[in-house]
Design a protein around this nucleic acid. Sequence first.
DNA 1: ACCATACATGCAGAAACGTGCAAGAACAGG
DNA 2: CCTGTTCTTGCACGTTTCTGCATGTATGGT
Lengths: 252, 252
Amino acid sequence: MLAAERRDHLLGLLARDGKVVAKDVAADLEISEDSVRRDLRDLAAEGLCQRVYGGALPVSPAVVDYAARQSVAQDGKRKVASAAAALVRPGGTLILDGGTTALAVAHALPRDLACTVITHSPTIAAALLDHPQAELFLLGGRIFKHSAVACGAAAVEAAQNVSADLCLLGVTGVHPEAGLTTGDAEEAAMKRALSARAADTYILASSEKIGTASRFRVLPWEKTSGLITDADPHDAVVEQLKALGLEVLPAN
Amino acid sequence: MLAAERRDHLLGLLARDGKVVAKDVAADLEISEDSVRRDLRDLAAEGLCQRVYGGALPVSPAVVDYAARQSVAQDGKRKVASAAAALVRPGGTLILDGGTTALAVAHALPRDLACTVITHSPTIAAALLDHPQAELFLLGGRIFKHSAVACGAAAVEAAQNVSADLCLLGVTGVHPEAGLTTGDAEEAAMKRALSARAADTYILASSEKIGTASRFRVLPWEKTSGLITDADPHDAVVEQLKALGLEVLPAN
DNA sequence: ACCATACATGCAGAAACGTGCAAGAACAGG
DNA sequence: CCTGTTCTTGCACGTTTCTGCATGTATGGT
């Protein structure tokens, strides 16, 4: 790994996570903490980050505000996204749904991860353009403005021609009785079509989705491999879901 | 191995891997590290890469984007885009290419225009999401990072299933003898496929494209309805194009 | 106040770098 | 066809830069 590459990596971590912990990065990249510290010192000297005990923080107040807003309103989504991104294996193929949580997954994917991402969301595709190692495959079709994804017959048909290891689906409701639900019938059908093309399907559900239900059923529990949520593992609804035999992956 | 070949190889590695390590390339191509370093130094001097200790990195995408947005052509692209947007009739169907000029067209479309837009660019699609009256149809396929559009067999096949009144194509070169050209063979094929599905095809060419040529031919003049450009109507090259029978729409 | 951790500094080995030089290839002109 | 010139390439050498370790200091938590 080139020194300059490390610096970019650090800046990327700052932008994505809003912080850098020297020790973690050193362990992650398998270099000495000294090097990380030296890099952070240099970056701070250039005004690109703010050095703090243990690591560094972004310098831009705007970024901090953004990170703060994310951490308040969408901290759950970010946690879920990180946990979901960890499921993606290098060289693997991922079907990624549309929606804000899935977009967070796209942002949480390591920038240098070599994998194939299949999506029906132009937004997700655009977000992954700067992942040089990621192969992108776009499923076309009529765009539903409501959720900004390709749906309908053409999109479902396009989905028939792909296969993947993993499918990450966002839903708007996760309820023990109503199951996995979303607000639009076309979207629900599309999600089913995507799920059917992957060996494993995991559901992305930040805590506010747990215990709620929307109008249209997406999938029965049996068709899913698990649920990724930041909700309290001892939450009553979560316990119920576990009792149904659902694997619940905690996101923290 | 020719020197120019080496340079291409290095640029290819930069685009594919996002970095070049001098030592590795030297070992790989069985040439001295000195030669690699010399090449990298030359490329850096031309602004085609960023020299760092140990190798080289691509010019920062942020810088490229910034430069692209700031570029002298911005004004020209906006003019061309406005003129092109005026060709779109309410209720009509438009096939819109990818690229920065086409993106400018997307932004130039009246927000309340009721039309159908077909595109193979996730970026264009994302830009049109806030046009409530516009029907959007996305052509899927493998995404080519270079220009951020869907290309290849699947995309061409998807294009076979649509028809439109108008197709607006961006190109990188407009030359009286070389014709309409672009820098990638797959892209050229995709542009041909798009053009074939529309009754009329107009070429978007801001003035800096006029008189230049790239590697791959897109279309012969006969297959195009006209050229939209902000170049001086009395420019020598423009006059030549008119003499070939091409309709030239001025953009001001 | 104490301890663990993070930090800065100095140092040494290793790696990368730039420069000058010479051998060889490509080329133009006679 | 020969010769002189120019360009490229690889090597050698001295210099700079990077990196990890060791040492001593500073910081934050308990």
